[in-house]
Amino acid sequence: MYRIYGHENILNIFKSIVFKNKISNAYLFVGEEGLGKKFMAEYFAMMINCKDNVSKPCFKCNSCIKMISKNHPDVFFIEPEGNSIKVDTIRYITNEINIKPYEANKKIFIIDEAHKMTTAAQNAFLKTLEEPPLYGLFILIAPRQEELLPTIVSRCNVIRFNKEDKDTIKNYLVFEHNIPEKEAETLAYIADGNFEEAVKLAKEEYINLRNETIREIEGVINKNDFDVLDKFTFFEKNKDNVEEILKILLLYFRDILIYKTTEERTFIKNIDFLENIQKMSSKLTIYKLNNIINRIEQFNSQLKSNVNYQLAVENLLLDIAGGL
């Protein structure tokens, strides 16, 4: 359950902190979504309160067992209610931090998506963060430190999470999600070092969407002008997934462009579609590939405004098929 994949540098930081007993009162874990920040925050909390004198965490002591079951009386998990963490939640934390731990050395608050604290909540939290009791410990989790007040960040030790290599992601899929090794290797290329993205990619509905998207867009390239408009049916059927479709398209055309310019398979993400990519690269010029990528990005921006969906899709299809 607590096998760690990657994060060697961060684990070394944790071990040094715990071994030297130099535990600060606040840490900020930053990095894009899907890199395992929350999991590692729980692991760090388990290490800190572990009762074993040698191996931390030991997974056997009373504290570790309660952490595994998420039933530790001195470890609190704070998450947004809806789209925000409100000031009432911070007041609850403030009241709770003033009560000494029941059984642990540290009373730990793991605040997930800390960037979703309202301005009032951040200001209220800052007061708590300025003078916490010695037994108090906060672990904040956010994608970027810039989304928090600078005064909060300045009182935290920042630990940065980076993307993992493809072998780490592949092993995670194989051993934790029982994905066949060859399939896991392909998914690891596409996931680009992100655990959460890899798990999403492994789901059957996503695999089907990806396969159908690539098949449909290849049909657009092979058709002439207004014949492509019948492809709108696919976009209409998958309107709720259009953002994922655009990500698939951008990655696919990026692969074609890379192969067109380098004839090198090393950097191809959609490695299972290599033969298709090779064929498409012979049909499309570098100029057109760049224009297609720019047009897809433009369409993605249009979706965020009040645009006629059918008209926007049809114009995109015509531009892709017609040479822009």
Rank of each mutant, 00 (worst) to 15 (best):
T285L: 05
E197M: 13
L229D: 03
R265W: 02
G219T: 00
K239N: 01
T266A: 09
E263F: 09
D230S: 13
V228T: 02
G219V: 00
V199L: 14
K279H: 04
R215S: 15
Y259A: 03
K279P: 00
F235Y: 15
E212K: 15
A198H: 05
L229K: 02
E236L: 11
A198T: 07
T262S: 14
S281K: 07
A198P: 12
E197N: 14
R254K: 15
K231G: 05
K283R: 15
K260V: 04
Y252F: 15
K247E: 14
E205V: 09
I221A: 01
K231C: 05
R210C: 03
K283F: 08
F267M: 14
N276R: 10
I214F: 07
F235Q: 11
L201T: 07
T285M: 03
D272Q: 02
Y259G: 01
F235H: 13
K223T: 00
E205W: 04
D225H: 08
E212D: 14
L201E: 12
L251F: 01
E244S: 13
T213V: 03
E204H: 02
A198V: 05
I271K: 12
L274M: 08
V220Q: 01
K247V: 05
D255L: 04
L246H: 01
K283Q: 13
Y259V: 01
F235L: 12
L201H: 08
K269V: 05
K283L: 14
I207K: 14
R265M: 11
Y259K: 05
L229T: 05
I217H: 01
L274V: 10
K203W: 02
E216I: 15
V228S: 00
E196Q: 10
L257V: 11
Q278K: 15
K223P: 02
F253W: 04
D230A: 06
N270T: 07
T262F: 08
E264T: 10
L250M: 13
T285Y: 00
K200P: 07
N211P: 02
T233V: 10
E264D: 15
F234R: 05
E275Q: 11
E218P: 00
K269D: 14
S281P: 04
I248M: 04
V199D: 09
T262L: 12
D230M: 09
M280T: 11
